[in-house]
Design a protein around this nucleic acid. Structure first.
Lengths: 140, 140
DNA sequence: TAGAACCCTTGAGCGCACTCCAAGCAAGTA
DNA sequence: TACTTGCTTGGAGTGCGCTCAAGGGTTCTA
């Protein structure tokens, strides 16, 4: 089903490289999405095999893992791309990167507060329904 | 700026009715969105003035408040419409309503766990950047 | 009574984050 | 060799949740 991809044959320098379907299986991101991420610059240029097929590295997987976290925060793809650019530009962008992450963090905190609040309403409603169902006295 | 809308003149039965812009101001939902909610059945038929303009009641506002909570949970509009239909259908739909809300609740909980996790990563990264910035020793 | 502000309807358009399509090349298997 | 599977590209299409446009009626204020 999946080919083992220790493509480097130099002993002691075994760099594992993954095909796009292996990465799809590992990350849960579709091949479409992976190619699209690369196209828009959310993923740096991925290495190619001699015939032009993508060969992802462990570093790519790590980055995709982090991107997954950012995505989970609800950060927009545009902002993630911006962040990726900053990373590529080097150490002098650390300030801006931190700003971006801090803004994201406070949005996440706000989101969580909202969810907590909505959850309380949900709990209350569900309890109400449970009482109606169990006691059967609410069917007026 | 905003007209006072105690349109009923029968004493002792003062039912406040709101124009669409008053509801917009109170709920933060745009007039477009309010009309659209009505169109798709997320809001029951709203009363009209003699000339066909919408006149919202306090009951409508309460419902919109609840819808806002559902929206905050991330529930899809389709599911909210389904829920609204069930409410209109009467007491015998209580079971299904509860099911819908319970499913939503567990999604919210999952979402919050994800956010908590992503927040930890964010905190870690931000700390890393803060150290780089403050001590200046990370600029290799 | 004029003008501004407000509201109506139907239907099209938009931004986001993918998702799919078509046509074709490449590699592994019987 | 033939077949199957997997990968490539650029560009078009999709689903969601609104958002806007056009064209026209209504209500308030001076």
């Amino acid at each position: 089903m999946s080919r083992s991809h220790s493509l480097s044959h130099s002993p002691g320098l075994t760099q594992t490289r993954y095909t796009i379907s292996e990465v799809e299986a590992r990350t849960g991101l579709s091949q479409h999405t992976l190619r699209w991420y690369e196209r828009i610059g959310l993923l740096p240029q991925v290495d190619r095999s001699h015939s032009g097929q993508r060969r992802f590295t462990d570093k790519d997987l790590d980055w995709l893992g982090f991107v997954g976290k950012l995505r989970a925060t609800g950060m927009s793809v545009a902002d993630m791309v911006r962040y990726a650019e900053l990373v590529r530009e080097g150490e002098h962008t650390v300030e801006e990167r931190r700003g971006l992450l801090e803004r994201t963090r406070s949005e996440v905190r706000a989101r969580m507060a909202e969810l907590t609040d909505a959850l309380a309403v949900l709990d209350y409603k569900i309890d109400t329904y449970a009482m109606k169902t169990v006691s059967g006295k609410g069917r007026q």
